[in-house]
Amino acid sequence: MLEVSNLTKRFGGVIAVNEVSFEVEKGEIIGLIGPNGAGKSTLVNLISGFYLPDSGKIRFLGEDITKKKMHERAKMGIARTFQNPRLISNMTAIMNVMYAVLGSERGSKLSLVEAYGEAAYYLDIFDMLKKRDVLVADLPIYELRLLELARALALKPKILLIDEAMAGLNPAEAERVSKLINRIREEFDLTIIWIEHVLKIIMRSVERILVMHYGKLIADDTPEKVVRMPEVVEAYIGEEVV
């Protein structure tokens, strides 16, 4: 479904993503881990079209999308969340879901009122309906994370790129978010790439893990195997996981 080959992105002297290649099958849920600055967010930004790569190719649903614009990729079904919630703080919660509804492929035929109704549905999935008229600027981080997910889901994605859904949350909240992600994955038949720092939870949810280190992909295997690879333990995972 998604095929990334030899993807490279430089920022000045820093090679944020270095010759990364991997494939994602439909329905997979993949964890992407790595220390700070490993290039995880940059990889998400390359797939979603936020940045264009210096070299390499991205194919999605059999089509080369390397040069496609960000909004076209979104319409094709690539949705992402932002590591630092990036919502429109001047707008209410439901408005922030509405524009994703309007921007989705089938959304081009919806009126504003219809979009409102659909946005309410997505908010309800995350138990945020009662907060629909609250300004985003007044929401706590937990609800911002939920809103990020609701907005991404409103795009009716085929693949969902989650750039940290649990950072800044307490363990109970993180647990709830993790359950929600598993639930929407089943209900909406999603393919997910999930970046996270809270390893214990993500290890339980995913079937496959990619490990990045200094821009390079250093491992791609099942969670059980990944935590035993010496280079992974050395590069990233401390004692806390195993």
Binding site: R86, I88, E105
Partner: peptide, 23 residues
């Protein structure tokens, strides 16, 4: 009051968010 007006509002606030969500 139309869908276009609303999308214009999103552009006014944050173009990159608008692009990220298919506008």
């Amino acid at each position: 009051r139309s869908r276009y007006g609303f999308m214009m509002g999103v552009i006014n606030e944050d173009e990159e968010v608008a692009l990220s969500y298919g506008i």
